[in-house]
Amino acid sequence: MSDINTMILVEHPLNEKMRTWLRIEYLLKQLLYQKNFKNIASTLTFFRAVSDLIDILERFEIRGDLLKKLEYQQQKLSSWLCAPNTDKDLIDSLITKLEACKNALVSAPRIRDCLKEDRLITSVRQRLSISGGGCSFDLPALHLWLHLPDEDQSQYIGNIIYTLKPLHHALMMILDFVRQSSSLEMVNSSNGFFKGNTEKGELLRLRIPLKNRLYPKISGNKNRYVIHFIPLEPEHSRSVDNFSFELACC
């Protein structure tokens, strides 16, 4: 059972680009967590995440947006080199890592095309929209694949993870910079609401006490936002009135 003193971390994007990046991060985590298959459920979770990732890569220019953000971070760090009392070695190291991410992303083949050309991924994608479409008679190729030796499955999954590596590294580095751009600070809600202003904010991060049994409904953009705290169960509505939580606008 969870400790009642646990703090729940919640993140909310303030623009469409960040929304897309967080969704990609979520899918990449599923791919990495499910890479050791133990049953058909974990296998379908993996392939469904791959399918969703393909859909996102088809709808948005992810590579170009990530390259622009990496370049922006490099320029920002370079401007700090002339500032007094800066750790120049650390900044040079970060600039080098950003450059490595850029080069890997530029030289990588089109990830979307690599995934779509895989016959097993294609066959599974065609059945994911069917209720119960993971049955062996719907996906005989996957049924056979599940009975292959572990080393064959590991090699196949390893190739997919390797294909996604440039995307994964670039995205995680960018999100790390964003998340570390602002520190969590204690603030107070009023009657279940909190309003704030920001200058070109990209991401809200909240740490909420589990004991309050509240979840946030957030609306906003790069300039302003509103957080409405809602009780999970009606009997806990009193805890909405006024309480403290931690907030960072990154």
Rank of each mutant, 00 (worst) to 15 (best):
Q30S: 12
Q34K: 15
I95F: 04
M173N: 03
A49L: 07
R205H: 03
H143S: 15
S183V: 07
P209Y: 03
D89G: 04
V240K: 07
R119H: 07
L14S: 00
T20H: 01
D52M: 08
F229C: 02
L22A: 02
I130D: 08
R23N: 06
I121M: 05
N15D: 08
L22W: 04
S42K: 12
I218F: 00
Q153M: 10
S239K: 07
L28E: 07
G134Q: 06
M172W: 08
R119Q: 09
K200Q: 15
K222F: 09
R63G: 04
Q155Y: 11
K29M: 08
H169Y: 14
L146I: 10
D3Q: 09
I111W: 06
E99G: 06
P234Q: 04
N223L: 12
E202P: 06
R110W: 08
I4N: 13
K88I: 14
L148C: 05
T96F: 13
E58Y: 15
S93P: 04
R238M: 10
F177M: 06
K76V: 06
S182Q: 08
A141Y: 11
L206C: 04
S129W: 14
L27P: 00
Q75F: 05
V124T: 04
L206F: 02
R48P: 03
D113P: 02
Y215Q: 07
D138F: 13
Y72E: 11
Q73K: 13
K102E: 10
